[in-house]
């Protein structure tokens, strides 16, 4: 049985006096124990909303969530508020994007770690403090005893993110959702944090959902990759297959737009034309069609379905042919 089974997840934001806005539409995927799954896409494609919906953190009043999310066979959406609170932090952990704003500025780091331990593992203050020291040590924070009594602003960015990871992993959740955990950090720290995450989930049953816009992160970490566009999955493949031969024009464009070291001098970057529209119309055509170099007539008339296509899921009428990748090996990493 899959650890997490997301079926047909949809999120519609509606506000009085505004037309409803569909942020996520029919997203399905599953996560096996110990597996790392990537959700990739540009800003506004519904990655974060998907993760918040799984955690049950979307505002009840303005967000309508549909579909089902089953965690070890338990339907999360049917749980009461209290039952859901008991699971958050214990079964489902989450690491957020901005480590500074995700930590309470007026509470020392130590208390923010022990808080979870006391809440979910019923530890006494003293025992929790010892465990917190252990946790900070595990995520590579030097001198953890001193750091426990310090405030978030006294830690460096990388250390803050380490602390957040320590908090998220404090109760050994079976699923960890990392929502762009490296975006707010500089490159050298990014690499450290990624290898830390990799190390922490490797060899354990903890599954990881990695949400990112950075394909480099995905390449190094994920077993399976879901590419999102306009609130729907447009391509899903095993990591190596996806990078070796991206079939959806959007995925292809994403990979193509990465600057490369071996590019010839003066060679221009190749961006994807246009930008994500606010409310993407999937009805009556492909949402990516206006930006797609491969667009056909059918693309603006018939909505493509997510279908099996040579061992991967693909939502496209006119996928990129592997041969059309040009200098074949260039794309393979």
């Amino acid at each position: 049985m899959a650890l997490l089974e997301v079926r047909d997840l949809s999120v519609v934001f509606s506000r009085k006096g505004q037309s409803p806005f569909s942020a996520v539409d029919g997203v399905s995927f599953s996560v096996q124990p110990g597996q790392t799954v990537g959700l990739v896409g540009e800003s506004g494609c519904g990655k974060s909303v998907t993760s918040l919906a799984i955690m049950g953190l979307l505002p009840r009043r303005s967000a309508r969530v549909g579909g089902s999310v089953a965690f070890e066979g338990t339907e999360l959406f049917s749980l009461s508020d209290k039952e859901m609170r008991d699971r958050r932090g214990k079964d489902l952990g989450m690491v957020f994007q901005d480590p500074l704003s995700s930590l309470n500025p007026v509470v020392p780091i130590g208390l923010q770690v022990t808080e979870v331990l006391e809440r979910h593992r019923g530890m006494a203050r003293k025992q929790a403090r010892a465990e917190a020291t252990e946790l900070l040590n595990k995520v590579g924070i030097p001198d953890p005893t001193r750091r426990l009594s310090e405030y978030p602003h006294q830690l460096s960015g990388g250390m803050r993110q380490r602390a957040l990871i320590a908090i998220a992993l404090a109760c050994r959740p079976r699923l960890l959702i990392a929502d762009e955990p490296t975006t707010a950090l500089d490159v050298t720290i990014q690499a450290q944090i990624l290898s830390l995450l990799k190390e922490l989930v490797a060899g354990t049953e903890t599954a990881l959902i990695m949400i990112t816009h950075d394909l480099g992160v995905v390449a190094g970490l994920c077993d399976e990759v879901n590419v999102l566009y306009g609130g729907r999955i447009v391509e899903r493949a095993e990591r190596h297959e996806l990078f070796a031969a991206p079939r959806h024009p959007y995925t292809h464009g994403l990979l193509d737009s990465i600057p490369r070291l071996d590019a010839a001098r003066g060679e221009k970057l190749s961006p994807i034309r246009g930008s994500v529209a606010d409310n993407i119309p999937w009805d009556g055509g492909c949402a990516f069609a206006p930006r797609c170099p491969n667009a056909l007539r059918t693309c603006v008339e018939v909505t493509p379905e997510l279908e099996w296509h040579e061992g991967r899921l693909l939502r496209c009428h006119n996928p990129v042919q592997p041969a059309a990748l040009g200098v074949g090996s260039k794309e393979a990493r």
Partner: peptide, 22 residues
Amino acid sequence: HSDHVLAATALGVHRRTIVFRH
């Protein structure tokens, strides 16, 4: 609506604790 309150909620912290501590 701050991030750290969302983060605390994501950790399943009690509402009382969120209000009084966070």
